[in-house]
Amino acid sequence: MRFEYNIEAGNFSKAGDASSSFKKILKQLNVDPQIIKRIVVSLYEGEVNIVAHANGGKAICEVDTNLVRIHLVDVGPGIPDINKAMQAGYSTASARVREMGFGAGMGLQNIKNNADILNIQSEVGVGTELEIIVNLPKAG
């Protein structure tokens, strides 16, 4: 099953909508609540990063029998130094974004802590792509 969500740049009042929709689907599919929590944290942080830092993008969420795979794809500006971006506390968030309580530099760490696999690819001037995988234990 595949679900796609558009993510608007700069629109904080819609940030979290994709996570909320996908969470409802995972509940309907009877995914273990503990695992839903980990997926939701990961998707939310990726979603907010596109709103806060990118020029818009989308989340493509796939549910397989043994895993959930999320692709977060945006159209730039890209991340110049991924290792630096991964460091807790590193943030380039604007003053406006920080005032709202974003920009602690913890989002990518949250994804790393909750996903089984996190792959980041980025090209400056082109865009960033996150692949997040959370394994689903066998039912029963």
């Binding site: 904080f12 709202m100 974003f102 602690a104 913890m106 989002g107 760490q109 949250n110």
Partner: peptide
């Protein structure tokens, strides 16, 4: 917000000065 996202637990009461939709 990402501190709460990462570390608050289900059923917690959240004390904050943030007042917006997120």
């Amino acid at each position: 917000l990402s501190d709460v996202m990462g570390h608050a637990e289900c059923g917690n009461i959240w004390i904050t000065l943030q007042t917006h939709k997120n």
